[in-house]
């Protein structure tokens, strides 16, 4: 196993443990956060705050370095334009997130936890990504 594969495995593992601990992997809790007009559970705002609080200084630190500690080329997005796909795609994602309470990471983690409903959601999500891939390859939707 290459070192960069091991580090990615460790990062995925930590990420999943964080999703489990934070409550993000539980759709009931996610929907409790998205339900502003009901009995609101603000917890997920703190998940975001905790994550950004740790990640922001590190992203700052890495800026201006062209290589990672393992010698990989740093591959960070450079685009700054706000275009239609960004806005429309994000809105579609938000509707799906609000319907089931799952976003991509938690769906994978809950699948690993043996939840058959999470597996069905994850398969539909992968199908949606595949559909995008097909349309994109035909040049209908520039990335």
């Amino acid at each position: 196993m290459k070192r960069t594969h091991f580090s990615a495995l460790a990062a995925g593992l930590l990420f999943g443990l964080g999703l489990l601990l934070s409550g993000m992997a539980n759709p009931e809790k996610v929907l409790g956060f998205l339900d502003l007009a009901g009995a609101w559970d603000p917890s997920l705002a703190l998940v975001m705050a905790g994550a950004i609080g740790v990640a922001l200084p590190v992203f700052r630190l890495a800026r201006g370095h062209s290589q990672s500690l393992l010698g990989e080329e740093n591959n960070l997005p450079t685009r700054r334009d706000i275009d239609r796909p960004l806005v429309i795609g994000s809105l579609l994602f938000g509707v799906g997130w609000g319907l089931a309470g799952f976003c991509p990471g938690p769906a994978i983690v809950a699948t690993g936890a043996g939840q058959s409903k999470a597996l069905v959601f994850a398969l539909a999500m992968l199908a949606g990504m595949g559909l995008y891939h097909l349309l994109n390859r035909r040049g209908r939707t520039p990335a």
Partner: peptide
Amino acid sequence: SALAGGALIGLASALLLLLNGRIAGI
């Protein structure tokens, strides 16, 4: 648990950036 779980998520994203030079966008 929300803050601590969030911090773990942030740490995982930081690790993937520092070691692999990649964005932890699932």
